[in-house]
């Protein structure tokens, strides 16, 4: 068994995690609200319109961040599943359970906004393009993880099964990333790459960065909130949760 530093064990204790993260929530909520408001106003009203696509391109400011977090969220879920399976860490299973509906919702947003963007740009809401299809698979993987949590009466069995599904589904992630390069069909290649300068004008790119940062804060906020609720649920027979319920806080 691998050894972890002291803080990892302490953070892994649901009660410690609960009280510690409670202090982070207002900061994350504030940061997410400010970044998302600024980014939305900037992107909708002040970023220059696209020479080819006109104003429909403004959908990028929610489409790309949502797709980013839909993918990053899958990593979170898969890593939580691995940690939960390997080190039998209960908190990891709770994070996994909170990550599934969040990821599903963001994948839905990415698909939905992509469809509405596709209509004026490509002339169709939907094509069975590699990127779009693999994102649809991602959506179903999230739904599968959610469904597995309801399929078992035992929490432990449900946690294990959904962790295994989350790990198996990781195979889809590189396909999504590479789909725009491997099958060059309709979906445009990535606008942002870590290794290259963005293929976008800075005036268009800056609000996108603000929105991505905002979506990251939002993701962290909702993931923590969901995990905290799940902690209370699974620890409901303990003394500290009973005390919490008494004070109503």
């Amino acid at each position: 068994m691998a050894r972890f530093p002291e803080w990892f064990h302490r953070l892994g204790a649901p009660k410690t995690f609960y009280s510690m993260t409670g202090k982070w929530l207002p900061w994350l909520a504030g940061a997410a609200a400010i970044l998302l408001c600024v980014g939305t106003v900037w992107g909708l009203g002040f970023a220059p319109q696209d020479a080819k696509q006109g104003n429909s391109f403004r959908i990028i400011y929610i489409h790309v961040p949502a797709a980013f977090l839909a993918l990053a969220g899958y990593y979170v879920m898969a890593v939580a599943g691995a940690v939960g399976l390997i080190w039998k860490m209960k908190l990891a299973h709770m994070v996994l359970k909170a990550a599934a509906p969040l990821g599903a919702a963001l994948t839905f947003v990415a698909l939905f906004t992509g469809a509405l963007w596709g209509k004026p740009t490509w002339g169709t809401y939907w094509v069975w393009d590699a990127r779009i299809t693999s994102m649809l698979v991602l959506f179903f993987l999230y739904l599968g993880v959610i469904a597995l949590h309801y399929a078992y009466s035992s929490t432990e069995a449900a946690s294990k099964a959904s962790a295994v599904l989350a790990l198996v589904g990781t195979a889809n992630i590189p396909i999504i990333y590479k789909s725009v390069d491997w099958w060059y069909t309709l979906h445009q290649p990535a606008t942002i790459k870590l290794t290259q300068a963005p293929s976008m004008h800075p005036d268009m790119f800056k609000p996108l960065l603000v929105m991505i940062a905002g979506f990251y804060c939002f993701y962290a906020l909702v993931l923590l909130m969901g995990t905290r609720t799940e902690i209370l649920h699974r620890e409901r027979r303990t003394r500290w949760v009973a005390d919490l319920a008494k004070t109503g806080y």
Binding site: T40, I59, A105, T113, K119, P120, M225, G226, T229
Partner: peptide, 25 residues
């Protein structure tokens, strides 16, 4: 510029989804 419905519906549905995500937990 004629793309209003696409843009505004996208933003509205996203906003509703984000609100639901916060309210649910």
């Amino acid at each position: 510029g004629g793309h209003g419905p696409y843009v505004w519906i996208s933003y509205a549905v996203t906003l509703l989804t984000l609100i639901w995500l916060v309210i649910a937990p």
